[in-house]
Design a protein around this nucleic acid. Structure first.
Length: 483
RNA sequence: GGCGCGUUGGAGAAGUGGCUUAACUCACCAGCCUUUCACGCUGGCAUUCAUGGGUUCGAAUCCCGUACGCGUCACCA
């Protein structure tokens, strides 16, 4: 059997979408598993919307995810160029061949005429499709249109009455009728090919063996199959992967929040978590296992285990997965990860930055979460809620806090170890322990009942902030501070 | 509207005619542990597989209809 060759062929009309990333991933896994080739091609024939920035974003996103292409844009290869706008003469030649063989023809109808026809068909409850009016134009009629300066499009002459069968690797056998297709456009009037035409030409010329793409393309496949047929080209294997849906079960879009890979990168998600998550959307492993490295995915991936039904993107699960990976990171990776989300006052001192990273690592689901923890150690003491206030009314509180403050401020340095020791000593001296000991201190220092280890938090906030906050707590309790 | 695809608990899903009194994971709930919280651990969470028929000794698994969801019918990809 010949070598497997797959491709990811996005159009650079925006940042890499989460669904596109999954298609790329599945293609990549398939190729990597079989030792095949993974090609990156740019379908930039939409001149209105294609931008160089989008292309860069797509490439960056792919690299960030660890999805490498061994042929295509930037890296080159035997079938270059890999940008469709640089291959226009190729499409032109194939179009001319089709015309010469009578399998395609020039069409001079204006967009207004077509639109009118469309509306009329719609009104009659018919499927709108091109009537084939220009199909049998004589040479004279064509010359006349040309003389009028009308730039024609090239249409494919769809053969009537044919069954078009797709043997799809994930959906099974799907049958369409050629009569359901109008004579679709191959070349636009400006000489640029349409998507259907360009993909077929490129996939064939680039020797693509497997096409793995989103389900939205399933209904487009008949047209492409017709082209393979007309050109006498061998058809690739198709696999249409179901869509990724938002919470409301409609196709994932901006409305649902973050849809691009870059969004997740910027929010402090880890690429290995996103890859793992994407793989689990629409594909199920054989074993009862959730955590997969890229290598493991390559080893285990199979199209036969790709699901037919659409999957809802569940942010909670992504977060959980991300937490799993984040908790395993080395300290310096955590430091690097959280730094972008902190202000300068926090990032200047290496030692305290490391302490912060160590303190929070197991509490973070993604790096940007670090922001939510900062009020615990920075700024004004947050307001107490009713529960906190009630705890602070207990009788041991004033004495405990005074003793604690006095002992602690007497120390030259406030390390987590010292804080812990001091707290223990205070508890012992006053005969207070457990929650009765820790809770008041925690609430007086952080304003919250919950959070990471209190000794570390206190060390992180430093004497000034602690002093301020304890003073504020005493004021709230209307007792005189005495340290 | 035509055509196509899909429908297992809130989410991802396993399951392809008897071994399923439907795995596993997230979320949720309860408890345990813990000098708080978190982490972790334990247990709970679908008598039922959209729905109605049919085939069969036996169906989530096969067939037909219905409903619902989505996709597609562009000189966008």
């Amino acid at each position: 059997m010949s070598k497997i060759r797959v491709r990811f062929a996005p159009s650079p009309t925006g940042p890499l979408h989460i669904g596109g990333a999954r298609s790329a991933l599945f293609n990549y896994l398939l190729a990597a598993k079989a030792g095949g080739d993974f090609i990156l091609r740019m379908e930039d024939t939409d001149r209105e919307r294609s931008t160089p920035e989008s292309e860069e974003n797509i490439k960056d996103s792919l690299r960030w995810l660890g999805i490498q292409w061994n042929e295509g844009i930037d890296v080159g290869g035997p079938y270059a160029p890999y940008r469709q706008m640089e291959r226009l003469d190729t499409y032109q030649k194939v179009a001319e061949q089709l015309i010469a063989e009578g399998k395609a023809y020039y069409c001079y109808c204006s967009e207004a005429e077509i639109e009118e026809e469309r509306q009329a068909q719609l009104a009659k409850g018919e499927t709108p499709r091109y009537s084939g009016r220009c199909r049998h134009l004589t040479a004279e009629e064509r010359a006349e249109k040309e003389a009028q300066g009308i730039k024609p499009v090239v249409r494919f002459a769809v053969p009537p009455g044919q069954d078009i069968v797709i043997e799809d690797q994930v959906r099974g056998r799907v049958v369409f009728q050629s009569d359901g297709e109008g004579d679709f456009i191959l070349m636009k009037s400006d000489g640029i090919p349409t998507y259907h035409f360009a993909v077929v030409v490129d996939d064939h010329l680039m020797q693509i063996t497997h096409i793995v793409r989103a389900e939205e393309h399933l209904s487009n496949t008949p047209r492409q199959l017709l082209l393979y047929e007309a050109l006498g080209w061998e058809k690739p294997v198709f696999a249409h992967v179901s869509l990724i849906l938002g919470k409301d079960r409609s196709k994932m879009s901006k409305r649902h929040g973050s849809v691009s890979v870059t969004n997740y990168r910027d929010q402090g998600y880890l690429p290995q978590a996103l890859v793992n998550f994407l793989a689990l959307l629409g594909w199920a492993p054989e074993e009862k296992k959730e955590l997969f490295t890229m290598e493991e995915l390559i080893a285990e991936f199979s199209l036969s285990r790709v699901s037919k039904s659409p999957a809802v993107f569940d942010l909670d699960k992504l977060k959980w997965l991300n937490g799993q990976y984040l908790h395993q990171l080395d300290l310096d990776q955590v430091v690097a990860g959280i730094t972008p989300y902190l202000d300068d006052s926090m990032t200047q001192n290496t030692a305290s930055l490391q302490l912060l990273a160590a303190t929070l690592q197991n509490h973070l689901l993604c790096f940007s979460d670090v922001k939510e923890f900062m009020p615990l150690i920075q700024g004004e003491l947050p307001q107490w809620d009713a529960e906190c206030a009630a705890i602070m009314q207990k009788e041991q509180v004033p004495g405990l806090l005074c003793l604690f403050a006095k002992s602690l401020f007497a120390l030259p340095e406030m390390t987590p170890e010292e804080v812990k020791k001091t707290l223990k000593a205070c508890g012992k001296e006053l005969g207070v322990k457990g929650a009765d000991l820790f809770m008041p201190v925690r609430i007086a220092a952080t304003g919250m009942q919950h959070g990471p280890d209190i000794d570390k938090l206190i060390a992180l906030m430093g004497k000034n902030v602690l002093d301020q906050r304890l003073t504020e707590s005493f004021a709230r309790l209307q007792i005189i501070k005495s340290w």
